[in-house]
Design a protein around this nucleic acid. Structure first.
Lengths: 121, 121
DNA sequence: CGTCTATGTTGACACATGTCGAACCAGTGC
DNA sequence: GCACTGGTTCGACATGTGTCAACATAGACG
């Protein structure tokens, strides 16, 4: 499985300056395509449980967190797994298994992309 | 009606420096309450149509836009109105009727709140 | 191999959400 | 008052989403 590939919020940046997915929100009206891409990210963060998970990973020392470290958000374990998968599919997190545990970390380009969206006119 | 009041993303800022709703995402794991407030904003922007509407308002000259200026996003006019109401309920937009037309503008505290969320550790 | 722990996947279900057409309200101008 | 235009609200419907229990998988450790 896992043909659900994470779509990059920033272009691959093939050697040159990264071409962000979208201009600042205040620059001009978004096109349908830009809105689709950017909305995916906002949507992924638009759930309290996912936001807590994302924040827990983003604030964890070393920039990564084991599921066991962050799964105390008031929902069942399968639900945590489900939300982490959604964050991963949205391109916000990456995961890696090391032995018994699975570690999640924030996709580096995320904050750049969000900063770009919020850049002042 | 309209007891659905827009909840402020920033505290009322009663005379002093505004106390933002939430710390940076990277500072520490969000509490359930912080996540509820912040997720509402992300959720509101997590729909392509709403994101286009928000961008259209935010980028419009004068900082405000008449519905008639921005309602060309590929959905029916009632749907546009529905989404604008959601953005308003989320505290992202304000509206004002002037004569025949209704004007929407971005709630000023929004960019401050979002910037705060994305502040680097 | 067998078992135990840590995660992910499946299936089912209630609920929220996006969408539209029809009806309705607010101003304008005749 | 009446018609017209710009916007909102209502009612209905299909689809999406969050949640859990049950089951499945991956390593670790005997």
């Amino acid at each position: 499985m896992s043909n659900t590939k994470a779509l990059p919020l920033l272009e691959p940046a093939s050697g040159e300056a990264a071409a962000p997915c979208c201009p600042p929100l205040t620059e001009r009206p978004f096109t349908a395509e830009e809105a689709d891409v950017a909305a995916r990210m906002f949507k992924a963060l638009g759930d309290p449980v996912r936001l807590r998970l994302f924040s827990a990973v983003a604030s964890h020392e070393g920039g990564e967190a084991c599921v066991c470290d962050i799964s105390d958000v008031g929902v069942s374990q399968p639900t945590v797994s489900h939300h982490l998968k959604k964050l991963k599919d949205a391109g916000l997190l990456t995961s890696e298994r090391r032995g018994t545990w699975v570690y999640y970390r924030v996709e580096p380009s995320v904050f750049a992309a969000m900063g770009q969206l919020l850049a002042p006119r």
